[in-house]
Amino acid sequence: MTSQWTTHGVELLPDTVRKRFRPDADGDPAREWLALTLLDRHAPGLAPRPLSLVGRTVIMTRLPGVPLRGTELTRTQLAALARATDRLLRAVPPGAAAVLPERRWYVRDSVAAIRRRAVQPSMPALAAGVRWLAGAEAGLLAGAATAVPVLGQADGNLANFLWDGADVRLVDFEDSGRSDRAYELAELVEHLSAWVDTDLDAAAFLARFALSPAERARLLECRRLFALLWLVFLSTDPATEARNPLGTTARQADRLLALLDAAVR
């Protein structure tokens, strides 16, 4: 079976997967190959095992399981998702993660996209988010520079987390690279897939991670950033809005305002 996405086509064979990247798209086979190679070395079994890189095609093993997106997560699945995420963020030693290329859509990219698209905020929540960002940008960038580096998957879509009945494994690393733990956790819990068609209990999920006070503070700021970024996409990109249920933009606005009012816990 072959499925076509924006940046690549995926051919699912009985035991392997062929991921062919389009030359005219942003998908990066080198990033995917590097991440899979590192995880095969440091956390075998967590992600597909890389088999070969031929031109713009990555061939890897096929993992068992079904996507968590679109499901009602059980307590067991939530625990497995947290274990897999924690394993990913601890897998690559900081020294090795520090020399990786910066992940796509890291702080600077996200801030730039917001500023570019939200020149004239069209709704109160968006205006509030832009005002917040004016005061938070320097701290977000400084946190990225000083945090312990990790390999970031750079895609919190729950469709990329496969449940096999006992464990969760991860796929899709085409945007991966150097990141930090708070940023990656924030992306996962603020991704639209976590609440639009899946019931991810963000508080219960995040409670499974032992975060330092500094990480907790950064986590809230990063959640605000991702919530604002999603609201920008939903309110300025008709294609993003059309892909989601009616009312998603209004719900995202409420989500952002709640995070702007939240305190560090």
Rank of each mutant, 00 (worst) to 15 (best):
T2S: 12
T7P: 01
T7I: 10
P14H: 02
R18H: 14
F21L: 08
P23L: 11
D24W: 11
G27K: 08
P29S: 14
A30Q: 10
L36M: 03
L36P: 01
L36G: 02
T37A: 14
T37S: 14
L38Y: 02
L39I: 04
R41S: 11
A43H: 04
P44G: 02
A47Q: 06
P48Q: 03
L53C: 05
V54M: 07
G55A: 13
G55Q: 08
V58C: 13
M60S: 13
T61P: 00
R62I: 00
G65S: 05
L68Q: 01
R69C: 09
G70H: 04
L73H: 02
L73S: 02
R75L: 11
L78Y: 00
L81E: 07
A84L: 01
T85G: 09
D86W: 01
R87H: 05
R90E: 15
R90S: 15
A91Y: 05
P93A: 08
A96Y: 08
A97E: 07
A98Y: 08
V99H: 13
P101R: 10
E102S: 06
R104A: 14
R104V: 08
W105S: 06
W105H: 08
A112L: 08
A112P: 06
I114R: 01
R116K: 06
V119L: 11
Q120P: 00
Q120E: 15
Q120S: 12
S122I: 12
A127R: 13
A128Y: 01
V130K: 09
R131H: 13
W132P: 01
L133V: 13
G135H: 02
E137Q: 11
A138C: 07
A144V: 04
A145F: 05
T146W: 04
V148F: 02
G152M: 05
D155T: 03
L158G: 03
L162T: 05
W163Q: 06
A166Q: 10
D167E: 14
R169W: 00
L170F: 00
D172A: 04
R178M: 09
R178W: 11
S179V: 05
D180P: 00
Y183I: 00
Y183W: 03
A186E: 10
V189W: 09
V189D: 11
E190V: 01
L192A: 15
L192M: 13
S193E: 13
V196K: 07
V196S: 13
D197S: 10
L200K: 13
D201F: 03
A202T: 08
A203R: 12
A204C: 07
F205Y: 12
F205D: 07
A207M: 06
R208G: 04
S212L: 11
P213M: 13
E215F: 04
R216W: 09
A217S: 15
R218D: 15
L219F: 03
L220H: 09
L220R: 13
E221M: 11
L225K: 03
F226C: 06
L231C: 15
V232H: 09
S235F: 02
S235W: 09
T236K: 06
D237I: 09
D237R: 12
T240F: 14
T240A: 14
L246C: 14
L246I: 15
G247L: 03
R251I: 04
Q252S: 15
D254N: 10
L259S: 09
D261R: 11
R265Q: 12
